[in-house]
Design a protein around this nucleic acid. Structure first.
Lengths: 213, 213
DNA sequence: TAGATTGTTAATCGATTAACAATC
DNA sequence: TAGATTGTTAATCGATTAACAATC
């Protein structure tokens, strides 16, 4: 993994995930498994990303391909794994044991990518002590302690909007550096903490706008 | 609602949702309810969007503010409602009665914004006939028929990746024009169909990339 | 050699933001 | 009038894509 020379935009990183996922999907077919190299054109067709964009994105991190030939499937996959940090396991915590927290606890895609849900936190006494997918539900009061103990740097927020800022602050106190936020609010975060928002209503409203016009 | 003169970018529409949500949240406090006007600066502080950007976004659709004064809270809220198409009810269907489909069926944020989940579709006989949040689960075989009958134009996809393309095609046959896709795949869609992808793994990988470096 | 495809430059396109005249 | 704030222009910034020399 060559050191990048310029700041790589987040959109590029997100597309690397898309390319990686496509390379992984090749393993599922006989035809794909027999493929030694892949061209930016083929990646483009499978992912919807312009081929020049594919080459540019990859070129941020090194010269992985051979001119006239393409990219070696297996090696490129390994490179992307390393770049994205998927070569290691990431302990994560979920705050909010509602339906969404539960869905995430049961979602096999997390463990598949190395995200290990170590614990779920809630303030409802009826939920504390139970398990989702064999993952224990703890009291929010103990969240800071466990985040620290498990050396967790990624937190997933699925609490209601009015609690989100408070719970995010608690996560950060425990040592969380990156938050995946499902609560429909703008979170004010201290410097050095990253956030990615997933907002179902906003996405749906993007759809209704265009249906409307 | 003034006719827009130029093509409005999707990012602008998404930010309109954010402004609208903020205006709605003002109703929840005594202080907010007493506010007659709001400045782009205040909206900026609450939403994290640059004030010039706020004014530009709103200016795509009309002159809603008064110089020296700001924007009238109530009227601006109404304008945004109309622009985003939230002044009417939108029937939606969910394909996939897994944990995520269930979480969405129970999510109160949908109905609050006018999204009415008319039915859920699955191919598992053990699920068909049951209900989530009093919403009936039908066989996927009947999906096309019901989409048509309910005049549904929005579909939410929460099926596994390998089924997604097939189910999306079925939705489109029924008359779906906009799809909110949670399946981690690139869907090839016919012209005139819009899609918004929500991909938890990609968002998480965006976080691990930066934690890694 | 001819065809294919990368890596990279340069052109294009689009989105953000600073600045300021207009005006309440 | 003085202060505040919009609406809009122009400058800036950044991302996408076409084009092509390099090279397998």
């Amino acid at each position: 993994m060559k050191q990048k020379r310029f700041k790589t935009p987040l959109v590029t990183i997100n597309r690397l995930s898309i390319y990686y996922r496509y390379l992984e999907s090749l393993k599922e077919t006989e035809e794909g498994r027999n493929l030694e190299t892949i061209s930016s054109r083929k990646i483009s067709i499978a992912t919807g990303v312009n081929p020049a964009q594919v080459r540019k994105d990859l070129a941020y991190f090194g010269e992985f391909g051979k001119r006239g030939i393409g990219y070696p499937v297996i090696d490129l996959g390994k490179e992307l794994r390393n770049i994205l940090g998927l070569n290691k396991e990431w302990p994560v915590v979920i705050a909010g044991a509602g339906n969404l927290g539960k869905a995430l606890a049961y979602y096999p895609g997390l463990e598949k990518r190395g995200f290990l849900v170590k614990g779920i936190f809630d303030n409802d006494p009826k939920k504390i002590g139970k398990r989702f997918n064999n993952i224990f539900i703890y009291s929010v009061e103990d969240m800071e302690k466990y985040i620290c103990e498990w050396n967790t740097r990624i937190g997933i927020l699925t609490v209601p909007a009015n609690f989100a800022q408070n719970i995010a602050d608690k996560m950060i106190l425990g040592g969380i550096k990156s938050i995946l936020n499902f609560a429909p609010v703008y979170l004010k975060l201290s410097h050095g903490v990253r956030i990615q928002n997933i907002d179902v209503s906003i996405e749906l409203e993007g759809l209704t706008y265009y249906l409307n016009s």
